[in-house]
Simulated scan of single mutants.
Amino acid sequence: MTGPVVKVAAAAVEANTKRGGDIRVTLSPKTVGCSSGFGGRLTLAPGEYVTEHLHPYSEEFLHVVRGRLEMTLDDEPVQLTSGDSLLVPIGVRHRLVNTGTVPAEAVFHLSPLAPRPELGHIDTEQPLNAGAGNPDVGGAR
């Protein structure tokens, strides 16, 4: 290992609730100074969802830790459960909903980074909480 160990607790990071759910970006240029992508944790209550959006520069990797989720990719639903992983390709519209009866948890990673944080997401559905917390991944590119 060439640099210092940087550990980030999800509870120490501000929640992004703009698109729904509780999204915590734990590893990012803003939190740890990384330069190739960002990732974190997502929690959704039963019936809760993340509004549809796409990433024009990044692939998204989603790993379900607990619960039942449905990811809709360009209008095609994909059922996911604990232990499943899914790749969301660059430019694919996607929307995630908790279809189970218990809170669902997943971890995610997106890479490569967009040229600037504000270019990383394009909303294709009205965000649920437009005025809510929406911390970006920050940092220089």
Score class of each variant (00 low, 15 high):
T2W: 01
G3F: 05
V5C: 02
K7A: 13
K7R: 12
K7W: 14
K7C: 06
V8M: 02
A9C: 10
A10W: 03
A10P: 01
A11H: 14
A12F: 06
E14P: 03
A15C: 10
N16F: 08
T17Y: 04
T17R: 08
T17F: 01
K18W: 01
G20I: 02
G20H: 00
I23Y: 02
R24Y: 06
R24S: 06
V25K: 00
T26D: 06
S28Q: 09
P29E: 02
K30G: 04
S36F: 12
G37A: 10
G40Y: 00
G40N: 03
G40M: 07
T43Y: 05
A45V: 10
P46H: 11
G47W: 12
G47T: 11
G47F: 14
G47R: 15
E48A: 15
E48K: 04
Y49T: 13
Y49K: 09
V50F: 09
V50A: 04
V50L: 11
E52T: 14
L54S: 08
P56S: 11
P56A: 15
P56C: 08
P56V: 13
Y57R: 10
Y57L: 14
Y57P: 05
E60T: 15
F61I: 13
F61M: 09
H63P: 02
V65W: 05
G67Q: 13
R68D: 12
R68F: 02
R68W: 11
E70I: 06
M71V: 06
T72F: 07
T72V: 14
L73P: 01
L73S: 00
D74C: 10
D75F: 13
E76F: 09
E76H: 15
E76Q: 11
E76I: 11
P77D: 09
L80M: 13
T81V: 15
S82P: 07
D84V: 09
D84S: 15
D84R: 10
S85M: 11
L87K: 07
V88N: 02
P89R: 08
H94W: 01
R95A: 08
R95M: 06
L96R: 00
L96Y: 00
N98K: 02
N98P: 05
T99M: 04
G100I: 00
V102D: 08
P103E: 11
A106Q: 01
H109A: 15
H109Y: 15
H109L: 03
L110W: 03
S111L: 13
P112Q: 14
P112K: 14
L113G: 02
R116Q: 14
L119F: 14
G120P: 04
H121I: 05
I122P: 08
T124P: 03
E125H: 04
L128M: 09
L128F: 08
N129C: 06
N129I: 01
A130N: 07
G131C: 13
A132P: 05
A132W: 06
V137H: 00
V137F: 01
G139Y: 03
G139D: 03
A140I: 10
R141K: 08
